[in-house]
Write a protein that binds this DNA or RNA. Structure first.
Lengths: 342, 342
DNA sequence: TATTTTTATCGAAACGTTTTAATTTATTTT
DNA sequence: AAAATAAATTAAAACGTTTCGATAAAAATA
């Protein structure tokens, strides 16, 4: 049916070995021969059959992308965009990405993703929070993997992270530069390490500018809930404002929460940004269309995916290199919700 | 390294052909022999190597899932959930699903997803609106495919659709049964056929109960915008209410819009559902947490994916059967926003 | 009983690549 | 000019399956 390496070889008057060498850019092939073979490939629209190639090389040509099921149902598309970034990057090396989800309760005997069970991947990307047992399984079985936007305390694994700390720092520092003094934090739980980092950045700015001190030890933060959502943002800011009505800026753990904070502030008839400025984190699509438009830290989701792929690919090729962490910078985009006042 | 069919054969004292027969449940194998082979496989944790299998069978073992890039960045996770449904269903037959996106402007020469270019899939699922040229390419090249939640006017293709018409009909009829008389529709564009169908259901209920007539020809509908969103829902209902302040129910083209409609109604100090009842469509996660909780038509996204997979799989096995359309029913879930009044 | 059919098993070819080691030819070094 | 090295090509084995056709034994039929 389809043209094979044999057809190419026959037509070019060479052996299939030579064709293979051209295909893989290996060994010695005369320039003339190479050009001839390449043009015949072009002409006959030849594409090497992946399954044959994989069988011969003993590689799968796949990498797995594992996501906690809850994340995939979430409103935010964060991890889907990261996936897309990996997919783009993987094209370079003809790798396919197999996506699957895992649950909270994870038993390697039972719940192992089938691409691991059947050894159908050369490596795995773990997106966000993921069961510890799974990480352990990969580690124990020497399967190359990379953590995305997550970390295991006390362990040094290959990982790609967002620069949560510096992003938060810059956002809050921006409030300070505008002369704002009562800067609140609205978050959900510290369940996810990213949020903890963002909070740390927030606190460090307050310290740096002496906005927390013996004289003024109050921290205007709300992070009691078990998750983050619009509703919690609204609830959080209302609760804070009832205790501290003179809050003049709010840094939120993410945009979803920030959108709720905006609703909350508006329902109390305060003006944004005149009375209170708001900055979120993530830059999800609705942030650009909210009113006022939300200032936020834009995290380059595609880049995260690309970097994760590259790191993983390197580890697939050289499995015994020390684990590495790569930090992806974020960018503060100022929109209406934190505009400077004249 | 890993155990192969040869190891199994040797240990069982049979030929590899026999092992293969057991593996594929084909031909004649004595019960005794089969049991022995199976238990040895179990014991040695044998998993057939996919690439070898694929090479021998000349199948790829993959199916492609193609999504318009815009959908993947959207806030709603509709198509991701559908994907997950396919992934679940595909496990039965050891199929992997390769996800990729395409842009609006699509030239088969340039933009063909690589799994098509390299013939790495046995069939393709097209999710939502997708370039016509792509559909044509698949049709011309006899690649089995199924459309999900989409249709090409005038063409009869394999497809899985939501029962938009009947869902809308039941929702609006529910308003009528509550005695509501001025029932509005807020939608975005009719760009997507689904919305057109929902509107058709809405109109047909009005006709059935003589809510549109010569005496009363006004239709309270808003669908001027180029997309659907929260903001547009809010804008839409405000615009309608300023012209028709006695509207007592709103059917929305989807939940996102409905959430905006709720905000709009609330900002005008009307009560939901006492003054105005609201029903959406889709049942996205925030609907359950909005206040009031949104009544909506719950569309079983996983089921859609599963059905799409099954249909596609049938076509991969039997390519020359007439195209079929399967309609997935939706369920009206009444929450607070359309509660019946005593 | 002889013949046909069914059941059970297996050897060998095929699937389309990569890769190793061998061979030939060309070039450089002595 | 001989020897050594480099460049170009290839034959053949290997990767792990499936499947076709052959063979043999057992069961059913004539």
């Amino acid at each position: 049916m389809a043209t094979t390496i044999k057809d190419i070889a026959r037509k070019a008057g060479v052996s299939i070995s030579t064709v293979s060498l051209v295909l893989n850019r290996k060994g010695y092939v005369a320039d003339e021969t190479r050009d001839k073979i390449l043009s015949i490939m072009e002409e006959m629209n030849y594409k090497p059959l992946h399954s044959a190639r994989k069988l011969a090389t003993q590689k799968t040509g796949n990498i797995g992308y594992i996501l906690w099921e809850g994340h995939f149902s979430e409103v935010e598309m964060f991890y889907s965009q990261v996936f897309l970034g990996m997919e783009y990057a993987a094209r370079r090396d003809d790798y396919y990405i197999l996506l699957t989800t895992v649950n909270d309760h994870f038993d390697p005997k039972e719940d192992l993703p089938r691409f691991l069970k059947y050894k159908d991947v050369d490596g795995v990307a773990l997106a966000g929070r993921v069961p510890l047992e799974l990480v352990k399984y990969l580690d124990d079985n020497n399967i190359p993997f990379v953590l995305i936007d997550y970390e295991i305390p006390g362990q040094n694994y290959n990982s790609v992270k967002i620069d949560n700390y510096n992003g938060a720092f810059r956002a809050v520092e921006c409030f300070v530069r505008q002369g704002r003094k009562k800067i609140a934090f609205v978050g959900g739980t510290f369940f996810h390490p990213s949020i903890k980092e963002r909070y740390r950045g927030y606190i460090d700015v307050l310290s740096k500018y002496n906005l927390i001190s013996r004289k003024n030890p109050e921290i205007y933060s709300f992070c009691e809930e078990s998750e983050t959502s619009r509703a919690i943002g609204e609830k959080g800011i209302k609760s804070l404002l009832s205790s501290y009505p003179d809050i003049d800026a709010v840094f939120c753990c993410n945009d979803t929460t920030a959108l709720g904070v905006i609703s909350g502030i508006q329902s109390l008839k305060k003006r944004i940004p005149e009375d209170i400025a708001v900055i979120g984190f993530d830059d999800i699509p609705p942030s650009e269309f909210s009113s006022p438009k939300l200032s936020t830290l834009q995290v380059p989701k595609l880049d995260i995916g690309k970097e994760a792929y590259k790191l993983l690919y390197e580890r697939i090729c050289h499995p015994n290199i020390m684990p590495q962490t790569r930090i992806i910078p974020v960018e503060l985009v100022i929109r209406e919700s934190s505009k400077c006042l004249k």
